[in-house]
Design a protein around this nucleic acid. Sequence first.
DNA 1: ATGAAAGCGCTAACAT
DNA 2: ATGTTAGCGCTTTCAT
Lengths: 328, 328
Amino acid sequence: MSVAVTIRDVARQAQVSVATVSRALTSPDLVRATTRERVLAVAADLGYQPNLAARGLITGKTGNIGIVVPDLNNPFFTGVLKGVQNQARLASHAVFVADSDEDPAAEEQLVRAMAKQVDGVILCSPGIDEQQVRELAESTTLVLLNRRMRGVPAALMNSGSGLRQVIDHLVALGHHRIAYLNGPRTSWSNKERRRGLRIAVQRHDVDLVDMGPFPPRYEGGLQAADLAMAENVTAIVAYNDIMALGVLARLRDRGVRVPDDVSLTGFDDLMFGALCQPPLTTVAMPVVPAGRLAVDLLLDRLANRDAEVRQDELDTQLIVRATTAPPA
Amino acid sequence: MSVAVTIRDVARQAQVSVATVSRALTSPDLVRATTRERVLAVAADLGYQPNLAARGLITGKTGNIGIVVPDLNNPFFTGVLKGVQNQARLASHAVFVADSDEDPAAEEQLVRAMAKQVDGVILCSPGIDEQQVRELAESTTLVLLNRRMRGVPAALMNSGSGLRQVIDHLVALGHHRIAYLNGPRTSWSNKERRRGLRIAVQRHDVDLVDMGPFPPRYEGGLQAADLAMAENVTAIVAYNDIMALGVLARLRDRGVRVPDDVSLTGFDDLMFGALCQPPLTTVAMPVVPAGRLAVDLLLDRLANRDAEVRQDELDTQLIVRATTAPPA
DNA sequence: ATGAAAGCGCTAACAT
DNA sequence: ATGTTAGCGCTTTCAT
């Protein structure tokens, strides 16, 4: 067990008051160099680690940040978490993580539970409604990730642009009739993608077949594949990679060749999209940078509460692999 | 920002002392029912949330647990994290997470940094040596996951048994000459798998070609594939799924058919093993249950420091899919 | 059954 | 430059 060496042990051993020890550690310029060195030496010798909870009690800062994600099994969110974790470490902050299991009620409760122990919370792709998010923002410093809302700082990825790049790519290849397989209608991500879609479609005058919504999973793709083929499209744009993989599997089973008979794109650039056969054309989401950005936004806000609310958007990028080709 | 309602606000409003409020919340039997209800009502009304840091300062318990993993991008560890997170929530504990980026030095430092803020730490697949782990175990309550060490509680998965099941399966199909593609020589997981391998091999009298080590990644598989084929084996047992996927890709490029020309197995049962073509025969590791188990072990240990050190092992299970068949 | 008071480990005035 | 003191919000004796 921890030997529980406190600031007093250090003070005694170094022959100074606890205040001096505290200062030597947190505001080194306030103590004479020789004293400081002696204190620091003793602290190191004793293996003294300040009790952050006690410190936080008085400073009002915990040095912790929290992150709430819908699902830790989703590589999208663990990518974000990785970025958050990296950047937090650079700023000497520890991170609390909670998984809401896609349950909005849990989401709300988890943020509240964290609030007391952290300086702020990063809320990823929240399923709760705007009103609830605003209430949470009252109880703690909040930064949103992958959702935009007036007045709340947010780390965003421009998925609209990603989808525009997809359509541009398909049109350049010569496609005119394209299916879009919707994800959940209510999700902010799906709305953003459709927005990009609408813009691109207007620009190019292509036939868009707007299908779904489908579950944003492998099974959703299996189901969508046949429906899309019945629409005589030459290209299928799936809501995300996993759905695209389901489409790919179903098409293969039916003997439909990709990309010879039909082109297919995903979204997210999860690792296995590069490893499947044929490798998937998709859009890379900068999830790790987004996690880092969210930490920066949070720390900025903590440092300067009156600054303007930042909502920064990171670029997405089309990754052309082997599931797209000119139509037959 | 948090409205900072403290126990004193509740006390004043409920016309009792802070001590009574404290008791109403933590030892309800010590206060009269009517008083308790009044206090609780006021607390709820004011939206009072006890400051856990302050509570921890006096009780010596934080209500937090920590977990340190080598890589948050690895689905294996996020599965564990998911289990940890679930179980911790059931026990009303929050979880700190840290990612060491496979760096042993960081691993050690992260555990130490966490130690003060948590009741105990779950250390996953540590890369540090036994001596260092023991030192860490001095500074906090430690539970290992995916590594066994005398005297330290551990949540384990029987990967030896998994590999035995793989060999039994291959032998039953009629294979006699089998390659094993080693992961990192120093890793506990690889040692365990080889142990299972040795036992199975002795029992069946098969020719084992022990190859590697290879990087436990896709690239490792690409590299290993040609070497394995040069050994004239009829089956390849990869250290893990990702490596197996690399092997699969390389074999396909060379025109070697799986499983017709050669059988192939992975290990871990990551999602994309089921989605690739052909779907991968592999061994399922109970990562989520292992995470839960680790939390149980930790809480048990916290509750009863003198109890015997538990090292529980969960069963692994062969998942037969389509990359294994009788040899040509 | 309840209250008063001490103190967990620390920082921040306020002294000197 | 350093020490003294008063809390931060809470639990827990010890009284009553």
